[in-house]
């Protein structure tokens, strides 16, 4: 198992903020929009350096999506930002008609995704966003794993012409990917090679998967950990190549088990090969208040849960 260490923990949303600052300096067509959550989205540096290219929308997410579509028509690259719940579920029809169906170059950038915004509880958490966004034809869906990868993804989506949903979060997590990485949309990242079980993880769960891999290694089980940062388009080739070697799979995501990464992987497996798959995901429920660590524990999203799922998958081979 390849070793990963870290010297610092940071929130992925700060990676987004850093990416936006760099984009502000590099690309004059980039415009940021926000619905009264500038501090939460870490947009302060972008706004300070590019006051004319920031549009405060107030607490009006539907209008923000429409204005973004209009800016895209006018040749701008709008980054529409708010919490993941309000960036997706609240405005699904606006995204569907004005962005996805109209194929507008809008980047929907969503913080506080999943359970780990913590204490605010289920009204502000969302565990259905990946499902909603991936079902929209033509939508690219990305869920990076740490600060560096989120920064790189933010910069990469500005270069890509088409609608994108970029999802990140609030808790601090280890920074374990390279700070000079090039983010390739749709290309899975091999974290660590192994032979007994494939662990396909996304977002905050990638670090948990690495921890799980180390625990399994200590028990004599060789886990392959793959970071599926792009949920759509899914890197089917990487998934099939990995399970051809290991013979079983675990999917791990901070999302409802219905409609997320796990289901996307299951579809690839059922169509191409017959290997067992186990899910690490929230079991079709809403979240609740608590600290991020408590919630990850209660809803079964920790390294320990991935280890158990890996053993179940191996036993079914």
């Amino acid at each position: 198992m390849k070793k990963y260490t870290f010297t610092e923990k940071k929130d992925t949303r700060s990676g987004f903020g850093a990416g936006m600052q760099q984009l502000g300096q590099q690309n004059e067509n980039v415009v940021a929009l926000c619905a009264d959550l500038v501090g939460s989205l870490k947009l302060d540096a972008f706004i300070k350096e590019n006051p004319d290219r920031f549009i405060q929308c107030g607490i009006s997410e539907a209008n923000m999506i429409g204005v973004s579509a209009g800016l895209a028509i006018g040749g701008k690259i709008p980054f529409a930002t708010t919490f993941a719940n309000f960036a997706t579920g609240r405005v699904y029809d606006q995204i569907r008609q004005s962005v996805a169906y109209s194929h507008k170059n809008v980047k929907i950038c969503a913080s506080h995704a999943g359970l780990t915004l913590g204490e605010d509880g289920a009204t502000h958490q969302i565990l259905e966003d990946l499902g909603m966004m991936k079902m929209l034809p033509g939508m690219t869906v990305i869920n990076p794993c740490d600060y560096n990868q989120t920064k790189a993804a933010t910069i990469a989506i500005a270069e890509y012409d088409g609608p994108v949903y970029l999802r990140f979060g609030r808790p601090v997590v280890p920074i374990f990917t390279a700070d000079d990485q090039k983010f390739e949309i749709g290309k899975a990242w091999m974290v660590s090679e192994g032979t007994d079980v494939s662990i396909f993880a996304t977002g905050h769960l990638v670090w948990e998967a690495i921890q799980a891999g180390e625990i399994l290694e200590a028990e004599g089980i060789s886990a392959e950990v793959v970071n599926i940062h792009t949920i759509k388009p899914l890197d089917e080739e990487a998934i099939l190549k990995s399970v051809a070697k290991t013979g079983c799979a675990v999917s791990a995501e901070e999302h409802n088990r219905l409609g997320g990464l796990g289901d996307s992987i299951a579809q690839v497996l059922v169509k191409n090969t017959l290997v067992p798959q186990e899910y690490v995901a929230v079991d079709d429920s809403f979240g609740e208040s608590g600290t991020p660590a408590q919630l990850m524990e209660k809803y079964g999203l920790t390294a320990k849960d991935i280890v158990a799922a890996a053993k179940r998958a191996i036993a079914r081979k």
């Binding site: 429409g66 800016l71 006018g74 040749g75 701008k76 004005s98």
Partner: peptide, 10 residues
């Protein structure tokens, strides 16, 4: 109207 506003701002 939202879309038109975006184009007008662009």
């Amino acid at each position: 109207l939202s879309v038109a506003l975006g184009v007008a701002m662009a």
